[in-house]
């Protein structure tokens, strides 16, 4: 099997498993909703959320992604599926790319439903360009899934298992949070001219982050997944 087909097979397996149980997408979606309600009460009588719109969205998505990332490997480990994958003639980095793309798809599905909901329920609007907004989300999602998949493979092989993931994932993903918030805040606020420069730099850093960690994951996944 070629590399592309190996990755495709793993993604397909994850999608079929998810379609049968629906537990990952549903629980992630409910979690996003719950965080939104928590924000409403957390900010008291505030009705204008627009100055920190990006922050709200990305805090919610980052924590939601944790839920899915943990799930994606707990499954494999508990059912002994990981051993099966390792024994099958699939290149190790392809296992990584397969799992990562699966996580990316699930997170994106949740976001496609959650973003409009956040916009409506918290009275937010996108004043800048919508394609830029989508690009910022996609770039951040790639980063979240690359680092998340890599680190959840590590955490699942320790005694603390899913307890460990937030401790190592949140600090490592902090550049994503900063850049995602900066760019989406700028785009949602509709800034132009000189004030738009940080948005562009943030997106550049996001792109650099994605590329660097894709390379790191490609080089190191062999050592992570077990020997």
């Amino acid at each position: 099997m070629s590399g592309g087909r190996q990755i495709g097979a793993i993604v397909k397996k994850d999608i079929i498993a998810e379609l049968r149980t629906k537990e990952m997408v549903v629980s992630m979606f409910l979690f996003v909703l719950l965080i939104m309600v928590a924000f409403h009460y957390g900010f008291g009588t505030t009705t204008d959320f627009s100055p920190f719109a990006g922050g709200l969205i990305w805090i919610a998505f980052l924590f939601t992604s944790l839920l899915g990332l943990n799930r994606s490997f707990v499954h494999e480990k508990d059912e002994g599926c990981l051993e099966g994958l390792l024994l099958s003639p699939v290149d190790r980095p392809n296992i990584f790319f397969g799992k990562m793309i699966g996580n990316f798809i699930f997170l994106t599905i949740v976001e496609i439903i959650a973003v409009p909901l956040y916009l409506v329920m918290l009275n937010l609007s996108i004043r800048g360009s919508v394609p830029m907004f989508i690009l910022a989300i996609v770039l951040s999602n790639i980063g979240i899934c690359v680092v998340g998949t890599l680190l959840s493979t590590i955490s699942i092989n320790t005694k603390m298992r899913d307890m460990l993931l937030p401790l190592i994932y949140l600090p490592i993903s902090s550049p994503i949070l900063i850049c995602a918030v900066t760019s989406t805040n700028g785009i949602m606020g509709g800034v132009t001219g000189e004030k738009f420069a940080p948005v562009i730099s943030a997106m550049k850093i996001l792109a650099a982050y994605d590329i660097m960690f894709l390379l790191v994951a490609y080089a190191l996944y062999d050592f992570v997944i077990g020997e």
């Binding site: 550049p175 943030a202 850093i205």
Partner: peptide
């Protein structure tokens, strides 16, 4: 290695 790669990125992001 992951953490060290992250250091310059955090540096620039902040």
């Amino acid at each position: 290695i992951i953490a060290a790669v992250n250091v310059p990125l955090t540096f620039f992001a902040i």
